[in-house]
C-alpha cells in the first residue's frame, strides 16, 4: 500500500497530508494521555506499535502471484482505539520512508491516511460490530471473532483506500476514476484478501497469548469483558 515517493502529484500529496495531519496530532495526544492515565499500558502500547512494525516488514506471497504486506494496525485499534494507531502507524511509515525507500515523505500523508487512519477506524468498527453480534457466544470465541474481523477489515480497507487515492490522482483515459480504481484495486485489494486472512489469524494468536499472560491488562482496557471470577465491575480509578 506504499505509494512510492513522488508518485502523487503535488496537489494530491498536499491534500492527503492536510487530511492526515489532524488525525496524527490527535493520535499523539491520545497516546500521551493513555500513557499518563495508565503507565502500565506502555507495555501493550509498545507491543501494538511493534506488531505493526513486524507485520508491515513481512512481504507475503498471495494467490494473485504477487507479494504484499499486512499492516498490523488492527491489534492496536482494538486494544487502544484507533487514534493511538494514527501515531504508531505513522512511526512505522516514517521508518520505511526514510530508511527503506518504501513509501516516501511526499506520499507520507496519503499512506498515513490509508494505513494509520482509515484502516484502524474500519477495523475498530468491524470489531465493535462483531463483538455486539457475538455477545452471546463465549467470551473467548467472541473476542477471537472480533479481533479477526478487525485485523481483516483494517488490512483490506487500507489497500482499498490506497487504490482510491491512486485512482483519484491518475484517472483512466477511458474509464475515468472508476476505471482506474478497478485497475488499482485489482492489484492491491485482491492480492490483499488472503493476506488479510493471514493478518487476522496472526492478530488473533497475539491476542490469545495476551489473554493468557496479560488477562488483567486486557480487562482493564475493556477488551476482555469483565464477569471474571468475583470481580465487582466498579470502575474506580485509584492512582
Amino acid at each position: 500500500m506504499h505509494i512510492a515517493e513522488g508518485f502523487l502529484p503535488p496537489v494530491h500529496a498536499a491534500a492527503w497530508t492536510a487530511a492526515a495531519a489532524p488525525f496524527v496530532v490527535h493520535g499523539v495526544a491520545s497516546l500521551t494521555r493513555a500513557v499518563r492515565a495508565d503507565p502500565d499500558a506502555k507495555l501493550l502500547l509498545g507491543a501494538s506499535g511493534a506488531f505493526c512494525f513486524v507485520l508491515s516488514a513481512l512481504k507475503i506471497p498471495s494467490v494473485t502471484g504477487s507479494c504484499s504486506h499486512p499492516t498490523g494496525v488492527g491489534l492496536g485499534a482494538v486494544l487502544f482505539r484507533p487514534p493511538v494507531m494514527a501515531a504508531l502507524g505513522t512511526i512505522t511509515l516514517l521508518f520505511q520512508a526514510l530508511l527503506l525507500a518504501h513509501g516516501g515523505l511526499t506520499t507520507l500523508g496519503a499512506n498515513v491516511f490509508s494505513m494509520a487512519v482509515v484502516g484502524p477506524w474500519v477495523g475498530y468498527a468491524a470489531y465493535r460490530a462483531v463483538r455486539a453480534l457475538t455477545a452471546r457466544m463465549s467470551e473467548s470465541a467472541s473476542l477471537g471473532a472480533g479481533v479477526f474481523a478487525a485485523a481483516f477489515a483494517a488490512s483490506l480497507s487500507t489497500y482499498t483506500v490506497t487504490s482510491l487515492q491512486l485512482a483519484l490522482a491518475f484517472p483512466d483515459a477511458a474509464g475515468g476514476v472508476g476505471g482506474a480504481f478497478v485497475k488499482f484495486a485489482s492489484i492491491f485489494s485482491i492480492t490483499q484478501v488472503p493476506l488479510s486472512v493471514i493478518e487476522g489469524l496472526v492478530t488473533v494468536v497475539i491476542v490469545r497469548l495476551l489473554t493468557t499472560v496479560g488477562r488483567d491488562q486486557l480487562l482493564r482496557l475493556g477488551v476482555l469483558r469483565g464477569s471474571g471470577p468475583a470481580q465487582p465491575a466498579t470502575s474506580g480509578e485509584a492512582v
Partner: peptide, 20 residues
C-alpha cells in the same frame, strides 16, 4: 497479583479516560 494499582474497569468502561 502483586501491586496492581487500579481496579479492572469491567464491561465497556475503558480505563484511560479519567485523569489528565
Amino acid at each position: 497479583p502483586a501491586p496492581e494499582p487500579a481496579d479492572p474497569g469491567g464491561g465497556d468502561g475503558r480505563a484511560p479516560a479519567a485523569d489528565s
